[in-house]
Design a protein around this nucleic acid. Structure first.
Lengths: 246, 246
DNA sequence: GCCATTTATAGTCAAGGTGACTCTTAAAGG
DNA sequence: CCTTTAAGAGTCACCTTGACTATAAATGGC
């Protein structure tokens, strides 16, 4: 129906049980071949002492995405400029009544993919912030377990048909590092030569770095360096071996 | 940051400028080879007289999805049971400050794909409801132009890697009707034999109807009837000819 | 210093999917 | 009765893909 409830129709904004809006973030990274999530320890009730996704209330003059960027910068110690440029994607909105015991809180969840960053300083308040391995994460506050699971599934699916994987890598990376992103998120081993062939055959996925400055330091033969290309979509997609999609 | 604004921290829910939450629906169908959208004419300010997506306020004890189903049933005259079973997908949340001149309204948008339904009766109030061709729709109320464009893009992308196209078809349909869904949404012509081969080669996409009851009434040779299968994902995907993805 | 190990990169080959196309069948319409 | 329209069967060349082999260039252990 198009009509507003009587309270709103009459513009009495305050007579109605109010909603609060939060922005929560599933910030993912790949560290030592494992998927990690940025979590904060709650300093106050409800769920004091529990781990939770970083996030907070959307202020009256902000959009949910602006709030997410602001919270992300505050939590991770990223410069506001870095946070402003970050790839941030709206995941889903969680609106079940009762998901927050205090009042009706609706959360717009975002996903961010970042390269391996230094350990975050805790946020402004008492809460500490840490990277934790995805597999070890359990019993987050509120419905954040569900949000995190949704984020992981979405990211896994997006790797198939977008160039998003480069967001997990630093500015310059090797194809081996890029491949490890896929292997970590999907939890499968990929054939090295085939992966290479596929990535290089997709125009705009990666761009070779000028001159042959190669990265050494690992075990084997030094690898050529690449930067993320200008493409965002992957046609045709890079499908998971026995994959499923959402 | 994890701490709530002071007003909420102290549990004074009413001291804060309140948010209102709405659920809006982009209900799409294919009619006479064209994509159509279900729209309502607004009966009251703001945007009185303008066309808008159906939708309305989320009630205190509802989730956004429950509100969307309720609104859909009210608007289209569908039975509540039909609406409850309908494929409803959360699209995105729109939270820009100022998107509603009355107050801070955050909208959770949903997409619904339905078969060609009878013309809807108007909703409970004075507003009329109608199917309008997607191409003719312009200048919707609020930011609904943007929501509708996002919905179309999402649906186009989802047809590639999901079995969603059957949602546009009645319970029993021909492969020609299914193909027309793709052609209409993507705006391209598909090769008939190739489309047929691809759909039938995907396990669980469609199931033939028992016995050879064939549909006549159109021009050419009668076609076999199918029902939607149990599969939801399409592996490998059915890619648009020169497609792009989101 | 030598060798096993590890990783990058080049290349091969067969199977399967895809796009373009042809042909036949079965209805409707004038 | 003949044209038109669409369903459905089938063909064929090309390209992608997965599986696999081979070589190059680094590290680490001995």
């Amino acid at each position: 129906m198009t009509s507003a409830p009587p309270e709103v129709e009459g513009y009495d904004k305050y007579a109605f049980e109010p909603f609060a809006l939060t922005a929560d973030l599933a910030v993912l990274t790949v560290r030592e071949g494992r998927l990690h999530v940025l979590l904060v320890e709650r300093g106050q009730e409800p769920y004091a002492g529990a781990w939770a996704l970083p996030g907070g209330f959307v202020l009256p003059e902000e959009s949910a995405e602006q709030a997410a960027r602001r919270e992300l910068a505050e939590e991770t110690g990223l410069s506001g400029d870095t946070a402003a440029r970050l790839h941030l994607e709206q995941l889903r909105t969680y609106s079940d009544p009762g998901r927050d015991p205090r009042m009706r809180v609706v959360s717009v969840a975002f996903t961010a993919l970042v390269p391996d960053l230094p350990e975050p300083r805790g946020g402004g308040d008492a809460a500490q912030a840490r990277w934790l391995p995805y597999e070890d994460v359990r019993h987050l506050a509120f419905d954040h377990d569900r949000i995190l699971a949704d984020a992981r599934e979405r990211v896994g699916a997006k790797l198939e048909y977008s160039c998003l994987a480069t967001a997990f890598c630093p500015a310059e990376f090797t194809l081996g590092e890029l491949r490890q992103v896929y292997e970590t998120v999907w939890g499968v081993a990929l054939d090295r030569p085939n992966f290479r062939r596929k990535v290089l055959a997709t125009p705009g996925f990666v761009r070779p770095v000028e001159g042959p400055p190669r990265r050494t330091g690992g075990r084997g033969k030094p690898a050529a360096l690449y930067r993320a290309g200008e493409a965002t979509a992957l046609h045709p997609p890079l499908l998971r071996p026995e994959g499923r999609s959402a």
